[in-house]
Write a protein that binds this DNA or RNA. Structure first.
Length: 554
RNA sequence: GCGCUCGUAGCUCAGUGGAUAGAGCGCAGCCCUGCGGAGGCUGAGGCCGUGGGUUCGAGUCCCACCGAGCGCGCCA
């Protein structure tokens, strides 16, 4: 759908050109017209500072330029007024009649309100979390989950063909250590006096998995004492771990479209094909007994090892093959990788690698989110799988619920260092913005169900009766959603959504306090019911974009 | 030491180079004989880490410094 913002930008742009054509304004280059939303209502609904930026090149006072351009703006039915104000802003006010009419538009568009077509069906992959299958999903991963899933939802709304993917690292040294730990636990269940390996995984869940395996296959995986465990331990363990992880993800409502096995890259020849391509393109050298990728030639600080002197490929080599698969085999137009800040040093070499494969690095976006520190009772809890002191995402979701967990994770910009105070999250659960927003929805549902008794059909309501300040403010807020989505698609910063949701709820609550919906005035009641139902559509949509529910009653 | 990120109200955080810097929580008050008070309204609380610079205009861009997190492996 066309954005009113774009329309206004076009009108101002055209007005500036018209002013030039009329000889009012000198023939200088006009900067891109971008309208902003002023903070103060007396500055109108949209504003442009183009005159201020034009003042120097046009060598005219900005206010005079503003007046000239304002005089040339073609005000149709959408715009109420165009005014030039000091020091040189053009303020634009939308027509109340046009605003009121948008209520019918929103109701007509329905659940799709906010959708954009900027994606034009392009294939985008969002890969996020991809935690190694060596332990349950922890709270820190929750941030990546909320980010990734929300980005995917927004891209989907913007017309991209989106795939959510989880890379299962089933081939690395970490899962080997995991398998050794598991085998030690397994042996312990048979009374053997063995200890879990150095750097292994001491968590309780390992005993649970071992017990499960024992109950399923008995002692059939037990090798003679002193020997390593059979490979089946590894595969069975990874499989069971992935089942736990999938449950954890389901608990917070994230559904992946694809689970990609790292091992498959080696099994199906993708890895070999990738190395061959890198070699052909001259980015591979052998040195000190290892095989290196010359990333320093492509802007990285240093070269990186692809194949260890032991013959084992590094994680980095697998990751290059993985991206070869994403871009060249599967043909995604765009790939978005979401990584924690502990992988930040990996970004330049991954970009370099994609470049080396002959893929435009612009097609790969790597979003880094800062790590989460957990606070409990004012004390910082270290998040470490190996220390066994993990706080699982499941624990958090069980305590605060999936909606609150999601809201809180997505509400922080990825760049910001996040302190997640578990005690506070629990304590505030009744005073949370989460419930503030959901309450607005429940209130609407209450009104609508009550309306059913008196106004079974309000579809004939005349929205032109919606002229109250609070009504118009609510409509304006609703109309912001598509603009916001455009912004999120552009920045990939979905933390704007929760803030918008809160503002929308505030606009509704304010309207509710000031305007009685169900009254003796039948015509006005019907018009307001339309407004309320439109607000319900938009609230539901923004909650859904964050993966949250819109409860009918609380 | 070098690199990335951050530093905004008591706390947790927003703030596409624009006009008088915002929200939630917390704090002090006020508003229910009409649709859900998990609500509304008012108030207190800020040298936007420090110092320079760019600009008509800087919380926002650049540089330096201070402080915090992360990284700098033939780990992932």
């Amino acid at each position: 759908m066309a954005l009113i913002k774009d329309e206004i930008e076009g009108l101002i742009s055209a007005a500036a050109e018209a002013a030039q054509a009329a000889g009012d304004l000198p023939q200088v280059a006009i900067p891109d017209v971008l309208v902003e939303r002023p903070q103060r209502p007396e500055h109108g609904d949209y504003a442009s500072s183009v005159p201020l930026r034009l003042a120097r090149t046009a060598s005219m006072p900005p206010l005079e330029i503003a007046k000239l351009i304002a005089g040339h703006v073609e005000t149709g039915s959408t715009i109420e007024s165009v005014t030039a104000v000091p020091p040189g802003f053009i303020n634009i006010r939308l027509s109340p009649a046009w605003l009121a009419a948008q209520v019918d538009v929103i109701r007509e568009v329905g659940a799709k309100f906010g959708n954009l077509d900027i994606g034009a069906g392009k294939k985008v992959q969002v890969e996020f979390v991809s935690a190694n299958p060596v332990g349950p999903i922890h709270v820190g991963n929750g941030r990546g989950l909320a980010l990734g899933d929300t980005i995917a939802r927004v891209l989907d709304a913007a017309g991209f063909e989106v795939q959510r993917e989880y890379l299962v690292n089933d081939a690395g040294t970490q899962t080997e250590t995991f398998a050794k730990t598991l085998y030690a636990r397994y042996q312990q269940l048979f009374g053997r006096d063995v200890e879990i390996p150095e750097g292994g995984y001491p968590g309780e869940y390992m005993i649970d998995i071992a017990t499960e395996i024992k109950s399923e296959v008995g002692d059939s995986l037990l090798n003679p004492e002193g020997e390593d465990g059979p490979p089946e331990i590894h595969d069975l363990g990874v499989e069971k771990m992935m089942t736990i992880i999938k449950d954890d993800l389901a608990a917070i409502g994230v559904k992946y479209d694809n689970w990609f096995s790292e091992r498959s890259l080696h099994a199906d020849g993708t890895y070999e094909a990738t190395m061959k391509l890198l070699r052909e393109r001259g980015f591979v050298v052998e040195r000190e007994g290892a095989v290196w990728f010359t990333s320093s030639a492509l802007g990285d600080e240093k070269d990186n090892v692809l194949v260890r002197s032991t013959g084992q490929p590094t994680y980095f080599a697998s990751d290059i093959a993985y991206h070869y698969d994403k871009f060249i085999v599967r043909g995604f137009d765009r790939v978005i990788d979401i990584w924690g800040a502990d992988h930040q040093g990996h970004v330049p070499r991954m970009k370099a690698a994609v470049n080396a494969l002959g893929v435009d690095p612009e097609r790969l976006t790597i979003t880094i989110y800062q790590l989460v520190s957990l606070k409990r009772g004012g004390e910082v809890v270290k998040l470490s799988k190996r220390a066994g002191q993990i706080v699982t995402l499941r624990e958090l979701v069980d305590e605060v619920g999936p909606d609150a967990a999601r809201y809180n994770f997505v509400a922080r910009a990825a760049d910001s260092h996040m302190d997640f105070d578990i005690d506070l999250a629990k304590k505030q659960s009744a005073e949370n913005p989460v419930y503030y927003v959901q309450y607005a929805h429940a209130r609407i549902a209450g009104i609508l169900s009550q309306a059913g008794e008196r106004f079974a059909d309000y579809s004939g309501g005349d929205v032109a009766l919606l002229t109250h300040e609070a009504e118009l403010a609510l409509i304006k807020k609703m109309l912001r959603l598509p603009e916001l989505l455009e912004q999120v698609v552009d920045s990939l910063e979905p933390h704007q959504l929760p803030y918008y949701a809160t503002e929308l709820a505030t606009s509704f609550h304010d309207f509710y306090e000031r305007c009685r919906v169900l009254s003796d005035d039948e015509a006005l009641s019907k018009a307001r019911l339309k407004l309320v139902s439109a607000a319900k559509i938009v609230l539901t949509r923004v909650l859904d974009l964050m993966g949250m529910t819109a409860p009918e009653r609380m």
